[in-house]
Amino acid sequence: MPIAYYITHPQVRIDADVPVPEWGLSDVGRARAVAMLDQPWVGSIGRIVSSAERKAIETAEILAERLHLAVELRERMHENDRSATGFLPPPEFEAVADRFFARPHESIRGWERAIDAQSRIVGEVEAVHAASEADIAFVGHGGVGTLLLLHLSGQGISRKADQPAGGGNYFAWDIGSRRLIHGWLPIDWPAARSL
């Protein structure tokens, strides 16, 4: 049975004057995405599906160039909608994110509800599964990636399964059984241990 990988974009160039969906990869993020190409699991990927946010597209394009594949964009794979607040300084962002996961049926400060973001990302992944016989790389974001991982592992929404800080992680599942193979690992493992 084919395997699916959910890959989160690595570190980004933060700019409070640029809308978050338009942020690109930082030099460190780009280097980590390139280091991902040396991982043994990458060679089996036969399809790449990405969020349409710039940081995800840049990550997917690095993978696609190596594998000589096209990148399929899916608008609804975007990160949880936080446009109501825009950029938040890191401590404030973390506090709001804690509430987002802790109260999934509520809109926290105008953000998309966690339960809705989960339903959206699960629906996008299921739509892609239905038309694929190859290993798939989904390239996206940590918040909705965590919500997907929780769904696949049968857990309720919480932040306990959140990806490690900084992004640039992945998890894998068996497409046929929808069973998680492993949780979050750095995309550039074991090189990430030296960062």
Rank of each mutant, 00 (worst) to 15 (best):
Y6L: 13
R179P: 01
A127W: 04
S107G: 15
W189K: 08
M36Q: 07
R113G: 04
A95F: 05
H129A: 10
A131I: 09
G86W: 04
H151E: 15
A117F: 00
F100M: 04
V18L: 12
L69Q: 02
R178A: 14
G43A: 14
R193K: 09
G110Q: 11
R74D: 13
E61D: 11
S50H: 13
P91C: 01
P2T: 04
G110H: 10
Y170V: 05
H182M: 00
G154M: 07
S83G: 14
E106D: 15
I57T: 06
S132L: 05
I7Q: 07
A114F: 11
Y5I: 07
R178N: 09
V28H: 05
Y6K: 11
F101P: 04
E72S: 13
P104M: 09
R113M: 14
A131S: 12
E112H: 05
A95H: 11
T85E: 05
H151I: 10
S153M: 08
L67A: 03
G168R: 04
I175Q: 15
W23R: 02
I14R: 12
A95R: 15
E75C: 00
T59V: 05
L25Y: 02
L88I: 00
A114W: 09
S50I: 11
V71D: 02
E106A: 13
G123N: 14
G176Y: 02
G166Q: 01
A161V: 03
P186H: 15
S26F: 02
I108E: 08
N169A: 09
L69T: 04
T8N: 05
A56N: 07
G123V: 09
A130D: 12
S26N: 03
A16G: 01
A130K: 13
W111R: 09
S26T: 01
K160G: 10
F171I: 04
G183F: 03
R113Q: 12
E75P: 00
E72H: 11
R47Y: 00
I115V: 14
V28Q: 13
Q11K: 12
R99G: 08
T146C: 15
R103M: 02
T85P: 02
K160I: 06
D81K: 05
A137K: 11
A95K: 15
R159M: 14
I175E: 13
E61A: 03
E112A: 07
V34I: 14
A127P: 03
G43Y: 00
S119T: 14
Y170F: 15
I108G: 08
H182Q: 06
A165D: 04
R159L: 13
G140C: 06
